[in-house]
Design a protein around this nucleic acid. Structure first.
Length: 149
DNA sequence: ACTATGACGCTTC
DNA sequence: CGAAGCGCCATAG
């Protein structure tokens, strides 16, 4: 998780969900937030480059306050408005294949990421018609699904 | 083993 | 567009 976040270039952002996706865990977005919460204030991990799906800063942690996050982002040239929101279309970043290969992910996880990213593409006309269950991404049957140990 | 709790996200209304 | 409802999943009690 920290390896992925650490690859986000200055001035760019990822959402919690995207970070989870990059790890082959499409439904663990909350955990990403929890993990970032555990970081100390002098960590090298650029925690401020992760926002929610609206492009809005959503931290409540006093250690890493919303204002602190906004300040760090602005220092990197990101425009953050007064509602602590930024333009995701403009600043969103995603690791390319080369970066993914360099993350020291377990081969199984890497494969899971591949299938997830491939599945994410044709979302245009393959979607809908079927009543989608509210709540989250449908559970996958692929290698990405979690099994109890 | 069980329950409550989020720096989340999707669908519905 | 905003709020409500619910699902998810690792952690903390």
């Amino acid at each position: 998780m920290y390896a992925v976040v650490s690859r986000i270039p200055p001035g760019r952002v990822m959402t919690y969900g995207e970070v989870a996706l990059a790890l082959g865990m499409p439904r663990a977005a909350r955990v990403v937030g929890g993990a970032l919460h555990l970081l100390g204030s002098e960590s090298d991990v650029p925690w401020h480059r992760v926002v929610n799906r609206h492009g809005m800063i959503s931290t409540r942690c006093p250690e890493h306050s919303m204002w602190e996050q906004a300040a760090r982002l602005r220092a990197e040239g990101v425009v953050v408005d007064d509602t602590l929101t930024l333009d995701l279309a403009r600043y969103r970043w995603a690791p390319d294949r080369g970066v993914l290969a360099d993350l020291q992910l377990a081969p199984e996880v890497l494969h899971a990421v591949d299938t997830l990213l491939a599945r994410a593409e044709p979302a245009d006309d393959a979607r809908a018609d079927q009543p989608r269950r509210a709540g989250n991404v449908p559970r996958s049957r692929g290698p990405a699904s979690r099994r109890r140990l």
